[in-house]
Write a protein that binds this DNA or RNA. Structure first.
Lengths: 348, 348
DNA sequence: TTTATTTACGCAACCGTTACCGGAACGGTG
DNA sequence: CACCGTTCCGGTAACGGTTGCGTAAATAAA
């Protein structure tokens, strides 16, 4: 099956006109007589003519489309980000194409290669597995507009949109300390990720500011971004296997997927939150307010983040020249205190 | 900023060869000497040559890309469907482009127009607002391959992938009856949606089979798909405003977004589930197993659904001719019984 | 009446790629 | 030497649209 739409050439033949005449008539050029214009316009409408965007792309070397490289779009944080991007892009007349990496460096490379020749610019959140970013760097140096969101890439100078990961983790840790917790564990995603390092920095600084000292045994990672439950499970097993006196009394999960799985783990093992162990984590899952016990979260402005990043990219696309200075937009996450991290039972 | 990649023409110039020679060399044609082929291949690799897909599209009138028209991709059901589609499409070498309708008929029309000339085929789930489908019909009759998923369109003959909505609703209703509930209310999305009508049919049949009779006062709709909380709130207000003796003792919500909002409503108004009112609903939200009380759901195989629909479309695209017969794939939803619909407390 | 200017339109090139066709060079055969 | 087949390669049209340029006719100016 193939879909054929009417072309300018066909219309020219039908109307006994030159191709360029029809083209110019459709563009309301002053070089075309009013009567001819009207005739062409009417015919085009009747035939439901739509200019072939492929042909235009070939000429103009632009698509009005942007590519999104993201881990997995069934993750609520990601789908919210995508939603924001799609909305912003659509409003500016841009189309989005999405390719998932599933946290694989190879698939990320493929995705970027694939998209690079068919979109005007790229919105990228690098995969957990990604270590080398040469391909991205060389692409960028060849003039491909790239904007990073959420999981940024250090050594490429361009616009970025991120959450204030430091303050998110810092605030959450401070809150746990204020509630009286002392053995606070940290679980991140891949330690290679800039945002994980930022969050860890926030966690550690908060500990030190409170006169506590960070301990390696309380710090865990999920190198594959906790894609599988088993990854989080392993880290949790290690943590909870510590002798009772040393076992963490609070948990800060700094990766969306890990938060839900850690919560799942604690519920499944019948740990009471916050009595046995308190918990707060980065999460954009819906319904965290109605789970039992209700889950304290550091919630990112996901849609906004997508929107801002898309706008950054579009500004890059619409400006002829490289901007004098690249911007990093920082969005404040919201720390929402609920039952899992409160010493005192809230009066629900 | 603009990204320029190396072309076959450029390489031909550099290598002092004809354009067609280079093209054929890259395709490993037998008409080209081994040495020339090697020379071209090496140079192409060195220059990181990627054939311009735009130019290919223009020639071949195909893109290897498919368009997804969906309500909102920040809805878990939708994002799971998209995830399935993207994975299946990617595996077959297809790219996906997503446009959201936000349940608006106008935006849907725009989206379809927009996509129609830049993708090979369409995966469509119609918006809640959509009544007329002339544009889709005419597009389809002109040869555009279209596959409907979830929210199908009656009067267009093509492949479809849906859940067994009748049996999902029927089973859920039966379950409520078995648990002893007698005044069972039904809330759907837009009554114009085929899937809502199917679910209502399942609900009514189950009532009748149990010797009960459906009553209009127990049937509510959210014409805009419950996009706003207020829509569900209004329906719930009406239901709960009935005199105590007539007030529903159970609720069957037959629209993803509505389920969550109805649950939210009942929790916010301090109704005890299932004591004050029982509840089960179509939902693919994560964490419904950990909300309190845990929520009984009819859960669709969202990823699978996306996968199957994508495969249907691709089979349409790869086959030259219209298939002799169109298929409707039906996926069985899973009915998961939890606290909100159980008379007896489960031993958790 | 002649010349200059405007009006209204067509021709052709171009974007990157492939496919068809044509042709040069070479060796083998009668 | 004439003829033919093979091997290897280049020119060109086409996909659909835009745009610079050329040009005929009509009109205005001299």
């Amino acid at each position: 099956m193939k879909f054929e739409s009417v072309t300018i050439k066909q219309m020219a033949r039908d109307l006994n006109l030159g191709i360029s005449t029809v083209s110019r008539a459709l563009h309301d050029s002053h070089e075309i007589s009013t009567s001819t214009k009207a005739r062409v316009m009417a015919y085009a409408r009747k035939m439901n003519y739509i200019p072939n965007p492929i042909a235009l792309s070939l000429r103009d070397k632009r698509n009005k489309s942007i590519g999104i490289v993201i881990s997995q779009c069934n993750n609520p944080f990601c789908s919210q980000v995508i939603h924001g991007m799609e909305s912003a892009a659509c409003a500016q007349g841009y189309q989005v194409s999405i390719v998932q990496t599933n946290e694989s460096a190879k698939r990320e490379k493929d995705a970027i290669n694939y998209l690079s020749s068919r979109v005007d610019g790229l919105l990228v959140s690098i995969s957990s597995e990604t270590k080398k970013t040469d391909h991205l760097k060389s692409l960028h140096s060849k003039g491909m507009p790239i904007v990073f969101f959420d999981r940024v890439c250090q050594n490429i100078e361009t616009h970025m949109t991120i959450s204030d990961n430091y303050r998110g983790a810092h605030g959450a840790t401070q809150h746990l300390i204020e509630q009286g917790f002392r053995r606070i564990a940290f679980i991140g995603g891949a330690s290679s990720q800039q945002i994980v390092r930022e969050r860890k920095r926030g966690y550690i600084d908060a500990l030190i500011e409170a006169g506590m000292s960070p301990e390696a045994q309380y710090i865990g990672y999920c190198p594959m971004g906790g894609l599988e439950y088993a990854e989080t499970e392993t880290v949790m097993d290690d943590l909870m296997a510590l002798p009772a006196a040393m076992r963490p009394d609070a948990l800060l999960t700094c990766w969306d997927k890990v938060t839900t799985d850690a919560y799942r783990y604690l519920r499944n093992h019948n740990y009471k939150m916050p009595a046995d162990i308190a918990m707060i984590g980065f999460s954009n899952f819906p319904l965290t307010d109605y789970v039992c016990p209700s889950l304290s979260v550091v919630q990112q402005q996901a849609e906004k983040l997508g929107e801002v990043a898309a706008l950054q990219l579009i500004s890059l696309l619409e400006n002829k020249h490289k901007p004098l200075q690249f911007q990093t937009e920082v969005l404040m996450p919201e720390i929402i205190i609920r039952e899992t991290s409160s010493r005192v039972k809230p009066d629900l």
